[in-house]
Design a protein around this nucleic acid. Structure first.
Lengths: 240, 240
DNA sequence: CGAGGGTTTGAAGTGCATCAAATAGTGTGG
DNA sequence: CCACACTATTTGATGCACTTCAAACCCTCG
């Protein structure tokens, strides 16, 4: 399958683009490129003038903000199906955070001018984009809540639960999606704290940790430990 | 001036509604009510079925999420010109957080069905709403950053700076917009911590605190103390 | 096999929370 | 205008959670 066809198929698989005219998408796909990149590749920096937005096909892209002295705050970590950089069209055409590949990654790079045009001319598209924006907003609200009222171990528990299929019952094995250092910063803590908090979670809830694999007999122990300190009940669906 | 006219004028003064047909707004205004409410009045609770959205005319409304044991996490605090509850249209018609009057407040209560209809039929409106959503998203991203890398005193300094007119130069007096306990929870800390962190900020930056009034000879001291631990330079425009 | 990154562990320090109590500030009724 | 009640704010003492710095360990990959 050629690259353009692959891009077109991807677009058609995303709810946001399903409301677009196929001809429009074909043109868009013609102006897009699939990119394979290694960890560390910078997609864009905060305040850069936006030329493109991105759709992640596989792997992980981290969004972060950075102070002058180099301290980073992870804003979010995106993966398959997520859009990156699209909000620049509402911010005078500049990116509001930096984006970098966190783990070997394939993504589509698309011209940003398409977005602004489509949002203005296709109200279904605007509505779909609003929905995805609203979902994101809800997620960020939850994130603030988590960081305010959950301790480190509870946040880890909550993170693990969001990796479990909510319909699943009985014993589960989940795999951490990226390295522990990154999970730590995603959850707003230091790697050392993560390591210790995970041990604590182990003794409290009886989960078993084998490298990046985490086994448990069921979600109940985690749920009762983590979700008690949260306004949302399991399944939390914090997105991602 | 009668109530409907006042509502109509308010709507016309907000960028979001300026893109609407005046006749449509007149109808909307006819279905809206101005409400005066005291501290503690609940506008809605998380998960309630949404009947209305709100526009704050004066005073303060806090958005919060609450765990079963009653612990609250303040998500945001809204004031003049802010919309509240509007995202419910993207969340199967349910509110995603609770809202309560934090300080004597006047607001307009409008029927929610208008929003969904207008977003779908008026693409300028959809675009305007996207812009406001994007602004909010940016603000929340910043909030997460602040809570991750700023300490309590720096967050207070940052909060104070956002109360200062960015174009202002020389000595300034700012007034805390609501009581210190609420400012504390807005910034994700305990009242006691707020009090101590404010004293610390006083000795570090030379600001003078007189009740809710805070005087300083200039913003520089605050800027160099608070903004150094932030990716955004002053004026930060964290909104609000 | 050795280098280098990721991860864990240890020791020590800091910041914030918590509980308790004092103080200041505000509004009320007399 | 004062005394009282009530709330907001501050202060003190203490403990825990998380960070920091340092070092060891582990694993993977050239």
């Amino acid at each position: 399958m050629n690259e353009q066809q692959k891009i077109l198929d991807t677009l058609l698989s995303l709810p946001l683009f399903q409301v677009c005219d196929e001809e429009t998408l074909r043109t868009l796909a013609g102006r897009a490129r699939i990119v394979r990149a290694e960890k560390g590749k910078v997609l864009f920096l905060s305040d850069d003038e936006a030329q493109a937005f991105y759709i992640v096909l596989s792997g992980w892209v981290k969004l972060y903000r950075e102070t002058i002295d180099g301290t980073q705050a992870i804003v979010d970590i995106m993966t398959t199906g997520h859009m990156v950089g699209e909000t620049s069209i509402f911010e005078s055409g500049r990116y509001v955070s930096s984006a970098e590949v966190a783990d070997e990654c394939v993504y589509i790079r698309l011209p940003i001018d398409f977005l602004a045009r489509e949002v203005k001319s296709n109200s279904d598209f605007a509505f779909a984009m609003l929905s995805s924006m609203a979902r994101y907003r809800k997620q960020q609200d939850k994130e603030i809540e988590h960081r305010t009222i959950q301790n480190a171990s509870q946040r880890i528990g909550c993170f693990l639960l969001r990796l479990v299929d909510p319909k699943h019952e009985g014993p589960v094995v989940v795999t951490l999606p990226y390295d522990k250092t990154l999970v730590a910063s995603r959850l707003g803590m230091q790697p050392e704290t993560f390591s210790r908090a995970l041990s604590k979670l182990k003794t409290i809830t009886g989960i078993r940790v084998k490298g990046a694999q985490i086994e448990m007999d069921g979600v109940d122990a985690l749920v009762s430990y983590s979700c008690s300190a949260c306004s949302t009940e399991f399944p939390c669906q914090g997105t991602e």
